[in-house]
Each structure stands twice: as structure tokens, then as C-alpha cells.
């Protein structure tokens, strides 16, 4: 049954990808990209990666689509140019595809427990999570504690990308920011059905975001997913009620504070470990009992991750939206 379902999803994915290449309408391409993300998320779920599926669904199908649509509104919806050097590109790509497909014959059997990937560090992580950290979700344990350095780096990359977008787009081209004239058609507020359904959904999306954040140690979830979900809820609010209202709820300065504050909280937990006599990002010294310390540390850094991701994604969204109003 899984085999049939997997082949079905993958075939749909390939069809979607081909359609994305062929369409000249960028709006259609972006929508198809959202569908492709959802199909990939379903695939991740089939492959036992619940955490990743949750992230891909929230980020790929939600936030990414909104950002691409924002860009289309500021630029163009149609692709004018003809495809360049079609035959040469196709030849290069086909040759590369043959090499990659040839390489797949040397890969270990799909799902094999004896593959090198499965026998290296993974058993150690699965084994020691109970002893050192004692939380059920091994993905969260590896993300937060065993590979905490990686995650710290990722958080800083997200933060840096957010700052980069603000540098590019926050400066107004023609001087000060013009607010939308009052009473004008902002957002989707004139449309009855999106407004009613959206207002009903937003509190539950926020609640789900908080659940995903704080339940990340026990089930699929954590800061990255929760940050994307909360940001998606506020983006929905901005689409329904107009961007100004969303900025009244969470002003730009607060968003910047969230982005920086989350990264600082993460780094601060690391430094606190050093001050208490451990290594950087060693949570064991944070409490009397090393296991309790690990759990406290993971809870704190996940909160930091969630704050930064929410802040950065919303800052980026508002930067694009404000640009559209000035144009």
C-alpha cells in the first residue's frame, strides 16, 4: 500500500515539475510550486520524517508562496523571454541526469538497515538520547543538543538573510512611507467568505503554533516549525485585514527585537553554560541534574529559534508588502 501511494505521489510531483517548466505564466508556476511542496511534504510523511513534513508544509506551501506572490505583484506575472540555448541546455542537463541515474545503481537498497547512513552515528543518537536527554523526540534532541552548534549557525543565517532583505527593501525609493488611504480596499476585507473563515481559523492556527513549539520534545515539532506556523497565521491576518492592522498588532520594531532577541537567547544559553563551568552550548550544567539541564537548555534554545524564525519571516513579509504600497 505504501509503495502504491509513494509511486503515485512521486509521479504527481514529476508532472507538476514539468508543468512548472513549461508554463509561461509565473502566477501559475508559483501556484504549482505550492502544490509541489505539499506533495513533497506528503512524501516526507511517508518516509517517517514527520518533523520535516510539518516544516515543508508550513514553509514551502505557505510562506514561500506568499513571498513569491508578493514579488510577482511588484514585478510581472508573465515570462517574456524565450528559452535561451534550448538544445545546448537540454543536452547538458540530460548528460548530467544520466550520470546521476547511473550513480543510483550503486546506492544501497532503499530502506536497508545496513546502509552506511544507518550504521554510523545514527544508532548512537537513538541510543543515547534516552540516557543523556530523556525526551521522546530524537529529532529535537539531535537538533537542540547533540548538534546545537549547527542549529545556532542556521539561526544566524536566517537572521542574516532577514537583515539582508530589510537592507534591500526597507529603504523607500521616493522618501517617506505613504500609508494606505483610509477606507480604501485593503486586503481581502471586502470578501465575506475569506474574512469569516480566516477570522475563525487564525486563533486556532496560533494555538497550534504554540502547541508545536512547546510539544516539540514529545511529538513532531519545535522552534522552526512553530515559527513558520505563527508567522503564517499573522500573514493570513495581514492579508485579511490589511497590512497596517497587522503592524498595529506587532509593530516593525517588535519584529526586529524578536529576530535579534531569539538569536541572542540561543547564544546566551550557550554562554550561560560556559559561565557555569561547562563548554559552550553544554546544557548539562544548567541544572543540578544533567538530564534536567539538557531539557531546560533545549526548551530555551527552541524558544529562541521560534522567536527568530517568526520575527524574520514576518519582517520579510512586511518589507515586500510595504514596497508594494509605495509603488
Amino acid at each position: 500500500m505504501t509503495v502504491v501511494f509513494g509511486i503515485f505521489l512521486l509521479t504527481l510531483l514529476l508532472i507538476t515539475a514539468v508543468a512548472i517548466v513549461r508554463t509561461k505564466n509565473l502566477f501559475v508556476a508559483v501556484m504549482l510550486m505550492g502544490i509541489a511542496s505539499l506533495l513533497i511534504a506528503a512524501n516526507f510523511f511517508l518516509l517517517d520524517a514527520a518533523d520535516v513534513a510539518l516544516t515543508e508544509a508550513a514553509v514551502g506551501a505557505g510562506i514561500s508562496t506568499v513571498l513569491f506572490l508578493g514579488t510577482l505583484a511588484l514585478t510581472t506575472e508573465r515570462e517574456r523571454a524565450p528559452t535561451s540555448r534550448k538544445i545546448l541546455s537540454f543536452a547538458v542537463v540530460s548528460a548530467a541526469a544520466l550520470v546521476v541515474i547511473y550513480a543510483t545503481f550503486d546506492k544501497p537498497r532503499f530502506g536497508s538497515p545496513d546502509a552506511p547512513t544507518q550504521t554510523h552515528v545514527a544508532p548512537w543518537y537513538l541510543d543515547k538520547t534516552r540516557e543523556f536527554i530523556d525526551i521522546p523526540n530524537v529529532v529535537t534532541a539531535v537538533l537542540g543538543s547533540f548538534r546545537g552548534y549547527d542549529t545556532l549557525g542556521e539561526v544566524f543565517v536566517v537572521f542574516a538573510a532577514g537583515i539582508g532583505v530589510l537592507f534591500l527593501l526597507a529603504g523607500a525609493p521616493g522618501g517617506g512611507k505613504r500609508p494606505a488611504p483610509p477606507g480604501s480596499d485593503v486586503g481581502l476585507s471586502r470578501h465575506l467568505i475569506p474574512r469569516v473563515v480566516g477570522r475563525l481559523l487564525i486563533p486556532f492556527i496560533l494555538l497550534f503554533g504554540l502547541y508545536v513549539q512547546f510539544h516539540g520534545e514529545y511529538g513532531p515539532g519545535g522552534g522552526f516549525q512553530a515559527g513558520a506556523i505563527v508567522a503564517a497565521a499573522i500573514v493570513l491576518y495581514a492579508l485579511l485585514e490589511g497590512e497596517e492592522k497587522a503592524l498595529q498588532v506587532i509593530p516593525r520594531r517588535v519584529l526586529l527585537g524578536l529576530s535579534a532577541g531569539g538569536a541572542i537567547l540561543y547564544g546566551g544559553v550557550g554562554v550561560a553554560g560556559m559561565l557555569l563551568g561547562g563548554n559552550f552550548l553544554d546544557y548539562s550544567v544548567l541544572a543540578d541534574d544533567p538530564v534536567k539541564g539538557q531539557q531546560t537548555g533545549i526548551l530555551l534554545i527552541e524558544a529562541g529559534v521560534g522567536l527568530t524564525v517568526t520575527g524574520v519571516l514576518l519582517s520579510i513579509f512586511h518589507a515586500f508588502a510595504a514596497r508594494g504600497r509605495q509603488a
Binding site: 510562506i63 511588484l74 545514527a122 542556521e154 543565517v157 532583505v165 534591500l168 520579510i316
Partner: peptide
């Protein structure tokens, strides 16, 4: 295996941030 999942989980969020930067440059 939890390790590839951890790597990809963070990569997805970093990916959207870099894509947003690219879109900013396009604008």
C-alpha cells in the same frame, strides 16, 4: 535515521530565507 531529518529541517528554513533574499534582489 534522525540525522538527515535534522539537517533537512533546518535547511528548509534557511532555504526560504535565502530565497527571500533572492526575491528582494529581483525586486
Amino acid at each position: 535515521n534522525p540525522l538527515p531529518q535534522v539537517l533537512i529541517l533546518t535547511a528548509i528554513v534557511v532555504g526560504i530565507s535565502t530565497t527571500a533574499l533572492g526575491l528582494g534582489i529581483v525586486v
